[in-house]
């Protein structure tokens, strides 16, 4: 790795600021064009919608910075929701911890397989995607059996409770992202994450516990996906089985739009949060337009992602 990286530095600045600039522009224009966009209700709704994805994408950010990928999070997200809904009949604690433990365990297995046997993250997590989705369908009679959460339970409060109209999940997501940012930038573990993704062989020679780092990030990613599922279930008051299909791709998209290098070694939590904001604002605006088919959300997100990745490529030269 003898190349000089001035181009990459430029790319870094441009990518991160690029997403931020795009977000600011989108927000400003939407505010002017759609009177309802800036309304407190809409902002609250936007933030709430974004918070679930942000929790998943936070874990994905760590995974991608180590140079990996986690395709299992969409399925784990759905599985977490169902487990939380099922667990809610045994009380708040079970409803919250069961999805975290199960999804965390699946993440741990992902990490162990990837770090210890050197299997490709793509394959391992693709297997868990199928595994978790299958498990989910099995425990819900192929989705026919939707577990409901009692509306007056404390667990529902976790998803629906508000402070000044802003839902609890928003605060949870913000708190986790702040913690995640500190973890990434201010701890030895965070440095190991960057080193692992930046130059794995060098990292090993520098004494970085590469295997342990990988295992940790996949466990984190699985746990966070499970938590996002639990929060969603609490919000929806039931374990909806059909959610989370393709969510792993949304998570990857927002992480990359946020300036994290898909090849690893560079990235920020703030960028991911901005990426989430951008995607959610685009969705929101398309909903505001009303006449536009909601499928155009994906079209716009896709184009945006492509632009970012092409920029990464060009600016790295």
């Amino acid at each position: 790795m003898m190349t000089t990286l001035t181009a990459a530095t430029r790319a870094k600045v441009l990518q991160r600021q690029g997403a931020a600039v795009a977000l600011v522009l989108m927000v400003a224009v939407s505010w002017l064009v759609f009177p309802r966009f800036g309304s407190l209700d809409n902002v609250r709704d936007l933030a709430l919608q974004g918070s679930f994805l942000a929790v998943i994408a936070l874990g994905m950010t760590f995974v991608i910075i180590t140079g990996g990928i986690d395709l299992s999070v969409g399925s784990l997200y759905a599985l977490g929701g169902v487990l939380a809904a099922w667990g809610s009949q045994h009380g708040f604690l079970v409803a919250l911890t069961l999805p975290l433990l199960v999804c965390g365990a699946i993440g741990l297995i992902n990490g162990l397989l990837i770090a210890r046997t050197n299997m490709a993250p793509f394959i391992v997590t693709l297997a868990s995607l199928l595994f978790a989705r299958g498990l989910l369908l099995a425990i819900t009679d192929e989705g026919a059996n939707t577990y409901q959460i009692a509306p007056d339970s404390a667990f529902v409060e976790l998803g629906r409770g508000t402070v000044a109209g802003f839902g609890y999940p928003i605060f949870i997501a913000v708190a986790l992202c702040v913690l995640g940012g500190a973890l990434l930038n201010r701890t030895g573990f965070g440095q190991n994450v960057f080193a692992t993704g930046g130059a794995e062989q060098s990292a090993i020679l520098m004494g970085v516990p590469v295997a342990r780092t990988k295992i940790t990030v996949y466990t984190m990613s699985g746990t966070l996906a499970g938590l996002a599922g639990a929060l969603t279930a609490a919000y929806l008051q039931s374990g909806v089985t059909v959610i989370g299909v393709g969510t792993e791709l949304d998570a990857i998209a927002v992480v990359v739009i946020g300036g994290t290098l898909l090849t690893g070694g560079m990235g920020t939590v703030l960028g991911t949060v901005i990426g989430v904001g951008l995607i959610k604002v685009i969705q929101n605006v398309i909903n505001q337009i009303g006449t536009l088919d909601s499928n155009y959300q994906s079209v716009v997100s896709g184009v945006f992602l492509l632009v970012v990745v092409v920029l990464q490529r060009i600016l790295r030269r």
């Binding site: 790795m1 003898m2 190349t3 990286l5 990459a8 500190a182 930038n185 201010r186 701890t187 030895g188 965070g190 440095q191 960057f194 080193a195 993704g197 930046g198 130059a199 062989q201 060098s202 990292a203 020679l205 520098m206 004494g207 970085v208 290098l261 070694g265 560079m266």
Partner: peptide, 27 residues
Amino acid sequence: EVNLVPLMSVAANLFLGREPRNRFGLI
């Protein structure tokens, strides 16, 4: 070959694994 991490800062490379900490244990 230089066995360091090109994307990390010079200082981060120098101190990887033994960074100076503040009183909260953060780097």
